[in-house]
Design a protein around this nucleic acid. Sequence first.
DNA 1: GCTTTGACTCTCG
DNA 2: TCGAGAGCCAAAG
Length: 106
Amino acid sequence: MNELKFNEKVWFLMKKIPKGKVATYKALAEKMGTKAYRAVGNACRRNPNPPYIPCHRVVKSNGGIGGFKGKTSGPYIQEKIFLLKKEGIKFENKKILNFKEVLFEF
DNA sequence: GCTTTGACTCTCG
DNA sequence: TCGAGAGCCAAAG
């Protein structure tokens, strides 16, 4: 049972992200010892585990939001941004202004 | 068991 | 700065 599946590893790292901070798919993948950047996003998109996973704290390496609720654009993205903004993260045109400031390093 | 998809990342022009 | 292409891995069909 110590065999953490790929998705489980992703969730575990996500939960480690403190409030007001964000992480990139790349960081997550590399931290778990793989380059499955996409697989990380897949784990979140399918989100086998509900609100238990703070997927909104995971962004792209360029500071972009990526997606939310299975959508890469639309009101869902705005909502994701709004949540992050409430945590002290600044956004501009769907991009994180203080990206490096809020970027959480494992 | 192969094919398709995806909330990605990097490189080149 | 921006767009297109290639590379990468895992889950679902």
